[in-house]
């Protein structure tokens, strides 16, 4: 569905992303793990065609066998086929538009009729009351804004959702709630590219995990593969997540 083929990104002579290739299949949950500055968000930006003009990229990104280019027709892919949940959810809404206006704009941009029933259903699932629709972003809490981000990313039932470190600022319970809700939804229709620096979280939910370091994918595979990986960076990540040191404890995490 999404294929990245030998993608490299440079800023002048500095290589920020080096020969990255990956594929995401239908209904697959892929997790991108790595420390801050490893190039995870840059990779996401390149998928979303949001790279700053100062960066030069080589390689290709394909969506359903068609190359994504920074052309105007790609507007129809984003929001509709690829949903994005940003890291900075507090600044993701225009302060002078109500939440309802944001949702209406999204529907209108993809020539779809405003589906009140679907909105109500998702709002109920993410525990948002209907009256919040008519409020401005400044009148909502951080948690409510994040749930509206989830709503916007999923309302048009995209085939792929990209979540960029969305549980970073959440308490453990809310983070778990959000992840579980997304997992349930992804299971139905969509694939997920989950960006995180938490290997434990990745091990718990992902079908396929990619480990990034210094702009390169240094390791990739499923949970079993990573647990037995000989890559020194993956080893150090496993060491840093004490709960994953033993396989039996990992199983405890997964079945929890």
């Amino acid at each position: 569905m999404l294929l990245i083929d030998h993608l490299s990104i440079k800023q002048g002579e500095r290589l920020l992303l080096q020969d990255v290739s990956l594929a995401i299949e239908r209904n697959e949950w892929v997790c991108l793990v790595g420390a801050s500055g490893s190039g995870k968000s840059l990779l996401v930006k390149s998928i979303l065609q949001m790279l700053p003009a100062t960066l030069q990229s080589t390689g290709s990104i394909f969506w359903n066998d068609q190359e994504i280019e920074a052309a105007s027709n790609t507007c129809s892919i984003y929001g509709c086929e690829i949903g994005y949940i940003p890291q900075q959810y507090t600044t993701s809404f225009a302060p002078f538009l109500t939440m309802d206006a944001h949702i209406r704009d999204l529907f209108a941009s993809h020539d779809q009729a405003y589906d009140e029933d679907r909105i109500r259903a998702i709002m109920a699932e993410v525990h948002l009351s209907e009256e919040l629709l008519y409020r401005y972003p400044g009148e909502l809490s951080g948690g409510q804004l994040q749930r509206f981000c989830l709503l916007l990313a999923s309302i048009l039932q995209p085939k792929l959702i990209i979540a960029d470190e969305i549980t970073n600022a959440l308490d453990v319970l809310t983070a778990r709630q959000v992840t579980e809700w997304l997992k349930a939804m992804i299971g139905q229709t969509s694939s997920m590219l989950w960006v995180s620096h938490d290997l434990a979280e990745a091990m718990t939910y992902a079908d396929h995990i990619l480990v990034m370091k210094d702009g390169r994918i240094v390791d990739a595979g499923d949970r079993e593969h990573l647990l037995t990986s000989t890559d020194p960076y993956t080893q150090s990540l496993l060491q840093a997540a004490p709960v994953l040191k033993r396989k039996d404890r990992l199983e405890h995490v997964i079945t929890r």
Partner: peptide, 26 residues
Amino acid sequence: TKGHVLAARVNGLTKPKIALRHVLPA
């Protein structure tokens, strides 16, 4: 470069629409 403008782009809004709804009001 503001978050809501980038979010609008990622949500597939066209540039003229983003200009009218997100940039010009600010």
